[in-house]
Computed example of a mutant assay.
Amino acid sequence: MMDLQVGITVRLRETGELMRLLAVESVYDSSRRPGKQGVCVETAFMRPLAGGGRERDAPVELVEGVCDHQKPLEEHEDGKRCPGCGALIYPRGRHEAT
């Protein structure tokens, strides 16, 4: 398994969704054990790779690193993709002037 480093692509184990890792922080969470002292949970904060969508957070044990995009990106019809994992990093037309 790849170390969780800010900027890499990660996969949510529950859904298989690919996202960009923004941060990993300890978050105090009292909701996990009602009536008892809360705990600090290592939490990953993520955003969708391309095309917008909802930012997410999840305990780090539910997230796995899949690619750090160290190879040059490849041009495709829909935009620039990572040759290592196939993730769409920069969609075509989204930020281009018309």
Rank of each mutant, 00 (worst) to 15 (best):
G65E: 01
M2V: 04
L62H: 08
T43D: 05
H69G: 07
V27N: 05
D29K: 15
G52Y: 05
E42M: 05
M19R: 01
H76R: 03
Y28E: 06
Y90N: 10
V39M: 04
R94V: 09
R56Q: 12
R20E: 02
Q5I: 06
Q5A: 13
G86H: 05
E17L: 01
C40N: 15
D78A: 13
G53T: 03
E14F: 06
R47L: 12
M2C: 02
S30N: 13
A87N: 06
F45K: 01
S26Y: 13
R20N: 09
C40G: 13
K36T: 09
L21Y: 07
R92E: 06
D57V: 03
Y90H: 14
R11S: 10
T9G: 08
L22C: 03
Y90E: 09
G86T: 07
G35E: 13
V60N: 07
P59M: 09
H95N: 15
E55H: 01
P72W: 00
P91K: 12
H95A: 15
P59K: 11
P72V: 07
L62Y: 01
R33V: 05
G38D: 04
R54K: 13
Q70K: 05
P59A: 14
Q5L: 14
C85G: 08
C82L: 00
Q5W: 00
Q5D: 12
E96F: 09
E17Q: 03
L12E: 15
G7M: 03
L22R: 13
K71P: 01
A23I: 04
E55N: 04
T43P: 02
V10Q: 06
R11G: 10
D68A: 04
Q37N: 13
L18A: 08
P48I: 01
H95T: 15
A50I: 00
H69M: 06
A50F: 04
D57Q: 10
V66K: 09
V39E: 01
E64V: 06
L18F: 03
C82M: 00
R11P: 00
R33E: 10
E61P: 03
M1K: 13
R54F: 07
I89F: 10
G86M: 01
D3S: 06
V27R: 13
K71A: 03
R94H: 04
R54S: 14
P34R: 12
E64K: 08
E75Q: 02
S26D: 00
V63P: 08
E75V: 14
C85S: 00
A44T: 14
G7S: 01
R20W: 03
L18K: 04
V24R: 12
D78G: 06
E42Q: 11
R33Q: 09
T9H: 06
F45L: 03
K71T: 02
Q70V: 05
L49H: 02
T9K: 12
D68H: 04
A23K: 02
E74F: 04
Y28G: 11
V63Q: 09
L21A: 10
T15C: 12
P59L: 09
V60E: 13
A97H: 02
L49S: 03
G51H: 02
E75H: 09
L12W: 00
G65F: 10
